[in-house]
Amino acid sequence: MSVGHVARAIEETGTPTVVVMVRAFRHVAERMTLPRTVITPFPMGRPLGAAGDTETQLATVTAAFDLLDRAAGPGEIIDLDLPFRPGWSTSLP
């Protein structure tokens, strides 16, 4: 919730923002109507990916940049489908 306040305040000054958060907090993005949100299917404490997994971390921020480029209005949320650990064949649900 803390970052939600920061996102809304920055956006109100005219600077576009994108928030990346784990799925356990998806309801926070919804009720705060954050400007743009990327939801990651990862355990809490690892919103961008597992420790040492540079590839997934870069894919996560790339998804955030893509959302910045294409979002047309507030409240857009996208759910990423990425494996949590390198080599896993499927993402967490």
Partner: peptide, 24 residues
């Protein structure tokens, strides 16, 4: 802290040409 609407500032250029800041 429930809001029916939110602020929205459109991007003025592609992110590929933008300076990115970070707050965590």
């Amino acid at each position: 802290y429930t809001y029916d609407d939110g602020p929205f500032a459109p991007t003025s250029m592609p992110v590929a040409g933008s300076t990115v800041g970070l707050v965590s």
